[in-house]
Design a protein around this nucleic acid. Structure first.
Length: 611
DNA sequence: GCAAGGTC
């Protein structure tokens, strides 16, 4: 019996075949240069099978409006909410499709090995659709879903012993999301672009094509940037006052120590002055406590995509989009593992020692790796798993990289070695003194074991000496002073902040955060200042304000969150696709008609910011 | 020409 197996990408197909075959399988070319065909023998339920393993490259099919609706002037825009859609295989995927069709004709069974997430289930149905059209004998009893939580020999064999039918509900949830994104995106994008592109006053602030787009992810992303900007504009600074005590200890050891007030600060100047005067009058300080307790600084969790993007942005000042471009290149050169992963826990028996061993060759961190190998790699375990890909880790030592590729690779290696190492350990000392009725304290830190910090310069943990003086010791502080200050607004969003907000509100996926952030910049809705923080542009401010005046929901994250909840209902059988689709379309058509009728509100807002 | 989701 011949069995066609299809994974979501070539890398997965290769590894699954390797695991199932317990060794390298035969490899031959398909029509697509990136998607190879792997062949091996395997027994399923006592049947000897010739396994044909190949892959797609993500979604094989996409949806678009029927041709008569694709011209922007072809119909009243509101019709896009109901216009018929077509399923298309884009030209650059035709080779993959033809390979599937050709192989499907010779097979009696089909096993779907796409990633075990929502999109994967939908991609699985695209594969089924194409294969079944080529070979109608691949009926429901001949099509199976392999469920796996990682690509290891055990998980792969287990999946083959426990094949299940594919889950159409999960696929339907994705089809629902995808249709809504298209209809809503196209409708609002055409409306805004056609109404505003030609207005001279806006032109200096628009992108080259004059495209004003709306999308269910790009707009909430812009919303976060605008919201933070406005929060800062609204912020009213408040004056406060505080008392600072400094002492230059001569014994038991020499040290300059700053004590901070236990009241932290007061917003009443007079009140602070009164207390300050009392302290100055009777400045003698008495040590009332010295506590010392162990403190550790945790080594980082295994790296997932979001962490890579955030770290590279913060520590290397390389933006998320560029980081992913580089990571994909390193991956295609076989230097690092698959860079799009939501997993931050290494599977058991992952072969970490071998991966650490690779790094011993480095003149920079080789010694650290050598030492780590002797102690045994002991990674911290996170709680997230996408059930397909392990955390990002180096595969080989790569001495010949340069520029940002070298820096990103180094970050990945150092992070990997750090996560496999031990927490930093030390002691925290808290010294408390009393001056009249007021208490002040100073914190000290002694680092006893640096451990992971030795290989991970991105974390700072600074030792601070506090003299070991005994309780009851009295001294006159070198200085007691009153200082004035002002509360300060939060900072503009950094890229790392923005990614964190997107993740928290379920805007986009780990693979798309960087793209949405890039989109709001290429649309000139937002820009990045010299501190690498996001500032809204004039059009961005105007659009958010304008939509706020029509329907607050448009630039806020909760519409997307609500859709996510409905999609979950579809997956779990509580609702069906048609029902959710109708509800969402009706809702957005309503907002669209409002926006069209009240387009002047959008114009007014844009006018305000572009004068 | 438009979205967001996959991936080379």
């Amino acid at each position: 019996m011949r069995v066609l197996n299809v994974a979501e990408k070539n890398d997965a197909a290769k590894n699954i075949a390797l695991c199932a075959n317990r060794g390298p399988p035969n490899r031959r070319e398909g029509l697509s240069q990136y998607n190879k065909i792997y062949e091996f023998q395997y027994q399923i339920n006592g049947h000897q099978c010739t396994m044909i393993m190949t892959s797609v490259s993500g979604h094989l099919l996409t949806q678009d409006f029927s041709p008569q609706y694709r011209q922007w002037q072809s119909c009243p825009i509101v019709e896009l909410f109901d216009a018929p859609l077509q399923t298309i295989c884009p030209p650059n995927y035709q080779n993959i499709k033809r390979t599937l069709e050709r192989e499907a004709r010779t097979c009696q069974q089909l096993i779907i090995w796409t990633d075990c997430d929502r999109e994967g289930e939908n991609i699985g149905y695209e594969v089924i659709e194409v294969c079944r059209a080529a070979n109608p004998r691949l009926g429901p009893q001949h099509v199976w879903r392999a469920r796996f939580s990682e690509i290891t020999p055990q998980a792969v064999n287990n999946a083959l012993r426990n094949l299940v039918p594919p889950d159409e509900r999960i696929s339907n949830a994705v089809a629902c999301r995808s249709e809504l994104d298209l209809r809503i995106g196209a409708a609002f994008t055409r409306l805004m672009t056609m109404r505003f592109r030609e207005i001279a006053q806006y032109k200096p602030f628009l992108n080259e094509k004059g495209l004003l787009s709306y999308g269910s992810c790009q707009f909430p992303t812009l919303g976060f940037v605008v919201e933070r900007y406005k929060e800062i504009s609204r912020f009213i600074r408040e004056d406060f006052w505080k008392i600072k005590v400094t002492h230059e200890f001569k014994k038991p050891e020499k040290a300059r120590v700053e004590f901070h007030w236990q009241r932290v600060r007061l917003f009443d100047q007079l009140c602070c002055e009164v207390i300050f005067d009392i302290c100055k009058e009777r400045p003698e300080a008495t040590v009332t406590g010295l506590t010392e307790k162990p403190k550790s600084k945790w080594r980082p969790l295994p790296m997932d995509t979001i962490e890579l993007e955030k770290l590279a942005s913060r520590m290397l000042k390389i933006n998320a989009k560029e980081t992913m471009r580089i990571a994909e290149k390193l991956y295609s050169q076989g230097l690092i593992s698959y860079p799009r992963t939501e997993t931050n826990i290494f599977p058991k028996d992952f072969g970490l020692p071998n991966l650490v061993q690779q790094q011993i060759a480095s003149p920079v961190w080789g010694a650290f790796a050598q030492n780590l190998l002797q102690l045994g790699p002991n990674p911290r375990a996170g709680k997230k798993s996408d059930q397909a890909h392990p955390p990002i880790h180096p595969l080989k030592f790569a001495p010949n990289l340069a520029g940002n590729e070298k820096r990103v690779y180094e970050l990945i290696v150092r992070h990997f070695l750090a996560t496999c190492s031990g927490d930093a350990k030390g002691f925290e000392t808290i010294l408390t003194i009393q001056i009249t009725e007021e208490f002040f304290q100073a914190d000290g830190l002694v680092i006893t074991e640096r451990n992971y910090l030795d290989v991970y310069p991105y974390d700072k943990w600074e030792a601070k000496t506090i003299p070991h003086c005994s309780v009851g010791l009295k001294f006159i502080p070198t200085r007691i002073e009153m200082a004035a200050g002002q509360t300060s607004p939060p900072a503009l969003l950094s890229e790392s902040d923005l990614i964190a907000l997107m993740e928290k509100h379920g805007i986009g996926t780990d693979a798309t955060h960087a793209e949405h952030i890039e989109t709001i910049q290429t649309r000139q809705y937002a820009g990045m200042n010299d501190d690498r923080r996001f500032t809204p542009g004039r059009i961005g401010m105007g659009l958010v304000d304008g939509y706020d005046a029509i329907d607050r929901a448009m630039s806020r994250p909760h519409l997307r969150s609500q859709l996510e909840a409905s999609l979950k209902d579809i997956c779990e059988g509580r609702r069906n696709k048609a029902d959710v689709l109708q509800e969402q379309i009706d809702n957005y058509r309503g907002i669209f008609l409002q926006a069209q009728a009240q387009i002047q509100k959008l114009r007014d807002a844009l006018d305000r910011y572009t004068q």
